[in-house]
Design a protein around this nucleic acid. Sequence first.
RNA 1: GCGAAAGUGGCGGAACUGGCAGACGCGCUGGAUUUAGGAUCCAGUGCCGCAAGGCAUGGGGGUUCAAAUCCCCCCUUUCGCACCA
Length: 849
Amino acid sequence: MHSEVFLVLFSPDYFRQRLEMATKTQKYNFKEIEDKWQRIWDEVELYRAADSPDPHNKFYMLVMFAYPSGDIHMGHFRNYIIGDAVARQQMMLGRDVLHPFGWDAFGLPAERAAIQRGIHPQEWTLKNISVSRDTLKKAGISFDWSREVTSSLPDYYKWTQWMFIQLFKNKLAYRKRGFVNWCPEDKTVLANEQVKDGKCERCHTPVIKKDQEQWYFKITHYADRLIDDLDDLPGWPENVKTMQREWIGRSFGAEIDFEIEETGEKLPVFTTRPDTIYGVTFMAIAPEAEIVDRLNLGGEYKEQVEQYRQKALARSDIERAAVTEDKDGVFTGKYAINPFNGERIQLWVADYVLAGYGTGAVMAVPAHDTRDFAFAKKYGIPIKVVIHPDKNTALDVDQMEDAFVDYGPMVNSAHFDGLAGKEAIGKVTQYAESQGFGRSKINFKLKDWSISRQRYWGCPIPIIHCATCGLVPVPEDQLPVLLPKVKDYTPKGRSPLADLPEFINVKCPGCGGEAERDPDTMDTFVCSSWYYLRYIDAHNDSEPFDKDKALRWMPIDLYIGGITHATGHLIYFRFFHKFLKDIGWVTTPEPAQRLFNHGMVMDSKGEVMSKSKGNVISPMELVANHGVDVTRLGMFFVAPSDKEVLWSNDTLTGVEKFAINKFYPLVNCLRGSQPDLKQYFNRDKLSADEWKLYIKLNQTVKKASDSVEKLQFNTAISALMELTRDFEPEKVSNEALNDYVILKAIQLAAPMIPHMSEEMWRQAGFEDSVFRSDWPAHDPNAVIGDTIEIAVQVNGKLRDSVSVAADAGQEDVERAAFESPKVVRFTENKDIIKKIYVKGRILNIVVKG
RNA sequence: GCGAAAGUGGCGGAACUGGCAGACGCGCUGGAUUUAGGAUCCAGUGCCGCAAGGCAUGGGGGUUCAAAUCCCCCCUUUCGCACCA
């Protein structure tokens, strides 16, 4: 830009014309400009993260690992642009930024495609990855692709196997026979998290129980820390922390040993209410519980119990849950002894007792437990009151319509009578402990993580089964155990690998004898439990990652993903991290400092977008028609990032007009003054209008910075819209200020509309990227104008507003207020009781009469 | 059933720590321009009322000089957990 030319042409009309010309003649060619900058950014490696960052000035921006399905949908797009805007702003704040991406590439869809179309899962997966990667590049997301990881490639899963072996060596990976969730359709074991409403999360087939030997990770070992450390995560949303606490489900109580009358076998039961111990009238055992086999059942009982057990096992979880109202069970003909009073109580087998919780048996106190009450009523089992609501109120068994479950003083409980609540629980537990038939106990709902899958497309479990040596891990220098090719992927209920003798048969690394490889593969949640560490050192072939680099990059500063992972992935990943800390690989107690869940993107009617409904809007189609920046801007503007969005393409109308017609043409208003962007302006050097503009700019800077911090880009955009609206170049004769305003606006917009901003920055004459410029800081002396509007209320009702100097005191404001006819009308002839003045905001005059 | 979060114009949404409710945008209305459509520009747009003014943040109560914001009750929606002894 030549300033001589400018001087000649400078007139208010000049700018109007320039603006109009700009909108009419040079239509913003988004395709050309976006392609150009994507190419240049790639060439200059703008997104390349430092190898060894300054640990005090780094930012690890992570978005969740994605399954490579080929095309990205609106939800992904939203997730990634939020992370992208944050990463770009952090670059401008001068941080070393790590913003990586990778693929959760093992899993069923690839195997299905292989079965249906005969393509090898790896081939199918890599093809999808390549399409997805191109799409993400076109979307302009600032991922550092040099650190891309793919969980199905040997250089990654080698280290997943290494993780398994570390867990195994620390006795945190073990085998156990037990009832597992089994999907009859997918023919595989499912973790609890993969069961939704008793159905398989993927194919919605009702899940059944199956008795199998499986691999487990002992996540329960970390249950306390997984709950307690949530308190040190202020950056995590409360709802996620609550969900995790409930999922882990810690409850404090006691374990009390009952004795089977006939066999003398001890049967411990867990209870949170030891204070109701004298009210126990029967005991109920889960149908799956092994102890039932040892009861020595005879005659008709034996038959009835067996029948009942069979029936219960055949029921799916939904069916079992459905009988909540109508509890059933069967008497075993046997009795147990309550150690507190020696009473004989009936022993029942009942469906409502869960095998996997506590000891699979409960002491039933019908008077004080709703479920036991219903059961006792149904089968005519005695009900015995041992808690009263309070000292003066007694419960009458015959009048009770439901159990009384609150705390209250103990009655009919020998020497414990009168004790209540926590004290009662403590005393009863202490007594049991002193007598040797009980102890205080903490129980968790969380179960150990079942990780083996009888499927092909997963990470092989690096264990060798040897008849002599037992379970032997594959020596670490022999990793990875490569996933071999197979001919037939069709699920048969056992792993396809089991049918490959050349894979299965190996020499035992311990004794050299004939042995067999484990034929199962791992749950894909294992792969995604440590990927964030691999990004830190993605190409290391001697270690999973370098400890020093991890020390520098960890923890993750911001982790963005959907709420759907609240109890699955986000617990596993915390567990892995804690384990790695315990064995000295990382130093932080938690992997991620701040967690953010973006809202879902639905169609305009509020329905989930799905192929079968035919209501899918592809973000890339919008990108093709409107450009990346406008599409991003629309997604940002429509709602704050955590809210659900009902997407309508109309959303783009307003932001497109703003970006193309208003914002971009601002470059035409530059006057080539090259202002120092680090300087603040002095009030004396500016006209009144200019000072007003300068204030507006600083308010915008402040607003935009706050908004990005809170990930509420919608308000950042509205601030920029206001600034653009209020900026009238013809009223600005100070060239430096004029250019300063435009350049700062470009910087503020850059995280959200990176291509357009970069193009404008370049047109403004900068050689280097706008993302290497400094994020604006607001001038603290210029956020409040010279004069401010004070609202004036009379008795809390707004009557007028007055304009006073910014430094005006209460007297000045009052004087101005009483000059207002409107205020006078409501105050004259009335007693003024008091006047409340809130500095810079409001004056409330309280009158009477 | 239990727990949590949220209810603001025709719509998406703003509103610091209790301090002018409705920023910004969509839509709509009128006008300018245009052969027309589109685009663009200008003005208006919570409701009632000619006005003065009154009424408005799911409903009802309360605290306060002042409540979308704090407290209590109720309604609705969404999400999570759903026999965890």
